[in-house]
Write a protein that binds this DNA or RNA. Structure first.
Lengths: 198, 198
DNA sequence: GTGGTGAACATACCGATGGTATGTCGAAGA
DNA sequence: TCTTCGACATACCATCGGTATGTTCACCAC
């Protein structure tokens, strides 16, 4: 059962998404033409529009791929049965590492809110990185580790802080050192929010 | 000296920037055509390309206008001779208010990094909002109000936290309440970082 | 085996859009 | 008055996203 058709269609999809992801990461959404994408995937626009409804849908497919990969790495860091605080700190370190991926930086953090629209981006993020951050904050509040601030807003702000830290790392001349600074600073902030055990 | 030519050219520039700013705010950069901009400004593309080198340059002019207005409001809140801590808190409240402006939200926070490129955006921000945040953090560290964390990274993270808070406000169904939550949360975070007076 | 069917593409084309090249007009100096 | 030049307007071009149509070929009913 080698020459099933669906095998080839799946590889075509993959080729398109891979090509799109690489070009979007390198030149951005607006700076990437469909011609360039299909050329790199060795297909034509007919194939593209057979599998996707348009440029945006292709972008979302690339977005989902990056986010799924990020989730795999992140949940591995967060999951477990240790104390909520320790898992949160591991999550912070893990997310900073995830943000070092140029594809995550450009596609997920920078372009997705503009290309997909903020509302749709927000909705998608619920099931991805932001969902994890939010869950972590919730766990911290429930465990009584931090002051009972509004979860939604606190999670948003932490998410923004993490993203900004990631951007600082990516734009730094010494990413390693900056990454250490970012982790240290965020941990310091979180520690400041930590409530003395009741 | 009414019919000086430069008077009219200045008003033409203003009309173009105003038109662009309104349309960029409403429909975004990619969703706004130059034809729509010049039509609303009651001029032609010839005038546009006489005053600006292209669409990006026009966007940057709009960006600068929004940022300048924001700076005026912000420095009024920050300037003064009170304690560094109080001025910082006033700055936070002021920045949250600034972020309620839809033009600031969409043009400065969302689109500018994508349209201008992150590096150029970062450079421009040095002289605008981010410059103020950074200066505030520096003042806090020098006054011994907060732990001596790396200023650049701390400022970036705070800036990201504020922007994320602003986005949460803009996307909220109850902006007033969310704005209060954001201010409260950020102040709580900053307070957590505050060092006991030596 | 063969004729029909539909998925999986390829090709040709269209309209919109950013950008350019050229033309026009009127005020200011020589 | 003649020239110059800034401040536009007009006409046009190239690119790009998207669509309409054509083509191939595996699969299935008979």
């Amino acid at each position: 059962m080698r020459s099933r058709r669906s095998d080839y269609t799946e590889s075509t999809r993959h080729a398109l998404v891979d090509s799109a992801l690489e070009l979007f990461t390198k030149r951005g959404y607006a700076g990437t033409s469909l011609d360039a994408i299909v050329k790199r995937a060795r297909v034509t626009k007919g194939a593209l529009y057979h599998h996707f409804s348009g440029k945006q849908a292709l972008f979302e497919a690339a977005f989902n791929q990056v986010e799924t990969a990020a989730m795999d790495r992140l949940s591995a860091a967060i999951d477990g049965d240790g104390p909520a605080w320790d898992r949160a700190m591991a999550g912070i370190r893990g997310y900073v590492r995830v943000c070092l991926d140029p594809a995550y930086q450009r596609v997920v953090i920078h372009e997705a809110p503009v290309v997909m629209g903020w509302e749709r981006w927000r909705e998608a993020e619920e099931h991805f990185s932001y969902g994890l951050v939010r869950g972590t904050v919730e766990a911290l509040v429930q465990a009584g580790e931090i002051e009972p601030l509004p979860v939604e807003v606190t999670a948003r702000i932490l998410f923004g802080a993490l993203s900004a830290g990631a951007e600082a790392i990516a734009g730094s001349s010494d990413p390693k050192a900056t990454a250490a600074d970012v982790t240290r600073t965020i941990v310091a902030v979180m520690t400041g929010m930590r409530r003395a055990a009741p």
